[in-house]
Write a protein that binds this DNA or RNA. Structure first.
Lengths: 202, 202
DNA sequence: CTGCAAAAGTTTCTCCTGTAAACATGGAGG
DNA sequence: CCTCCATGTTTACAGGAGAAACTTTTGCAG
């Protein structure tokens, strides 16, 4: 009888429930203009309850962004893990995973890189972002060690490839990679072009 | 005596004045969280006056974004105009101009590519963005004609280079191109890497 | 010149939001 | 059993978005 209670006073895990509601709204609306009150309402809780878990609305948004970076990291890691013929192929897989993630979670991805997810305020968010960025960095370093990538400053490779992947993701989200405008497989095409410049075998 | 009137009832060009105030606030705050009422207040006008010129707050934001695209286009065009030894050099100049513009107008640049500047709603904004994008496209086509760039689908070149430039701009704005992280000249380095893949001379 | 319609501003009003403060409740430890 | 504290709720208030109704100019037709 404690199973389907009629809203116990204490929710159990309201923090998580609020995050889930907000993530759902973000996914549906593809923006984060939702109000905190609406999130509370949909979670079936009073409009002030969220403040017991988040100092303000922006703190919730940063939490969502943080989760986004963790999930993106997982997605990229999974995509890279299968046996790959080359580091270059692994790079393409990771990049496509990132772009795919952005395409399937456009609202979340945009939030992650918006000024509402201010990484200078929230160390946890900053760390989550850096950790995900670290996946790319690790791959580039590995590629340099095994002779796949040019022996330039790894940071230069990182800037170029991160910019490229993030840029493609944003274009994809904005539906600016339509076939008639940009060919049938713009992402691999663009990645290959950059890789031709990054790799030793040019 | 009609020169320095004491706030005539009719402002003269309130629309322009509101835009200027909003642009100034955008530049100072580096975000567009300002309220329409605050814009009205600073322009010295009642809080409902803006509605005579903009249907709602978002319409003003789209107007700002539109202006941003026009200015960015001008900046890039100016940067490309001087005599250049090669189309490739011209490309680098235009790209750097774009990134410089973003760095000097971070708030505006972010707004231009945010979901608050929805190009599917506002044809004028869409056109402004497309017109600026067209500068890049023209340059790439010229480069293909003169043999600078590979004879692949121009749209593939466009996707790759637009992604790269926009990605670098976003990284620059987020102060993620710090010298200790990414070398002393990350922008030219990254651009050159992509160009090595885009150009025929590889 | 007069009169008037429309443009451009202002006032007023309603509904909603964020957030603070004070109050209620229920579960865990003494 | 009692009491504390985290977690919820209610109440309250300062603002904002935007609609509606009212006022001032201005441009123009006669």
């Amino acid at each position: 009888m404690s199973e389907i209670k009629d809203r116990p006073y204490h929710h159990g895990d309201l923090r998580r429930a609020l995050i889930d509601t907000a993530l759902a709204m973000l996914a549906v609306d593809q923006n984060w203009t939702f109000t905190l009150r609406e999130v509370a309402r949909r979670t079936g809780v009073s409009h002030a309850a969220p403040y017991k878990h988040f100092r303000d609305r922006e703190m919730l948004l940063r939490e969502l962004a943080s989760i986004g970076f963790v999930r993106l990291g997982e997605t990229m890691t999974e995509a890279m893990s299968p046996a790959m013929p080359s580091t270059r192929a692994q790079f393409v897989a990771a990049a496509q995973a990132c772009i795919g993630f952005a395409y399937q979670n456009p609202g979340l991805y945009r939030l992650m890189f918006s000024s509402d997810a201010d990484k200078t305020i929230d160390p946890q968010l900053h760390d989550a972002a850096m950790s995900t960025f670290g996946i790319l960095l690790g791959l580039l370093e590995k590629g340099q060690r095994d002779g796949s990538f040019r022996p330039v400053a790894v940071s230069a490779l990182a800037a170029a490839s991160w910019a490229q992947v993030h840029g493609l993701a944003m274009l994809a989200i904005s539906h600016q990679l339509l076939e008639e405008k940009v060919g049938s497989a713009p992402v691999p095409a663009a990645l290959d072009m950059l890789l031709d410049g990054m790799c030793c075998t040019d």
